[in-house]
């Protein structure tokens, strides 16, 4: 009867895990302004005292090009611009963790007779950093223009292994970049290229 206990435990766990998908954001929450919305807007937006949206848009493109981005899409009449760059996403921390886990699981595998238990955690390999920018007048016939930029990134993972199962590469993860320094860097470069002082909102 003792051998049945683990089987029963596995059964209960499977039933419990089978239907639940962890904490999930519902679509209802996603169309409501949050407490962070205003702070994010302030970080992503700068005002410029100029009438010329076109000049501001091309200066934005130039600033992004200076930062290594390639412009992928534009719409002049709406002052819209999208740019992206690809870079390596390898980090020492992840590589070290992968090494330690691989070493420990190899040791475990050598001492136990239960077969292959080697685990190789997939690490981040490649990332695409992208920016979506809108330059538009604050109000119609206004002298001031508003530039709002959003940075985000897509990360692709490499391959891994869990016991005898091979984990193929290519798993994707996305995240918004909320590091104020990136935005400050971009706006500093932009104000330099248009010879204008950027005002915070």
């Amino acid at each position: 009867m003792r051998s049945l206990t683990p089987a029963f435990a596995v059964f209960v766990l499977l039933v419990a895990a089978g239907c639940s998908t962890g904490p999930k954001t519902t679509s209802k929450d996603l169309f409501v302004l949050t407490e962070d919305s205003a702070a994010n807007k302030a970080m992503q937006t700068r005002l410029f005292e100029t009438k010329n949206t076109n000049e501001l848009l091309s200066a934005s493109a130039a600033a992004l090009q200076d930062l290594g981005f390639q412009v992928t899409e534009t719409d002049r009449s709406l002052g819209f611009l999208r740019a992206a760059k690809e870079r390596s996403a390898r980090e020492y921390g992840q590589e070290i963790r992968r090494g330690i886990v691989a070493f420990l699981t190899t040791l475990l595998s050598a001492f136990s007779q239960g077969g292959n238990t080697i685990v190789l955690i997939p690490v981040d390999l490649q990332q695409q950093i992208a920016a979506s920018l809108i330059a538009q007048p604050v109000q119609e016939d206004d002298k001031r223009q508003e530039v709002r930029i959003v940075f985000y990134r897509l990360v692709w993972k490499g391959d891994g292994q869990s016991g005898d199962t091979y984990l193929p590469p290519g798993e994707q993860r996305m995240e918004m970049l909320r590091d104020a320094e990136i935005y400050q860097q971009f706006f500093a470069r932009l104000s330099k290229s248009v010879f204008l002082e950027a005002e915070k909102i």
Binding site: V32, L33, N40, K41, R82, S132, V150, M176
Partner: peptide, 9 residues
């Protein structure tokens, strides 16, 4: 943009 969307097109 206020809602945190990335303008794609």
């Amino acid at each position: 943009q206020d809602l945190g969307f990335i303008i794609e097109r």
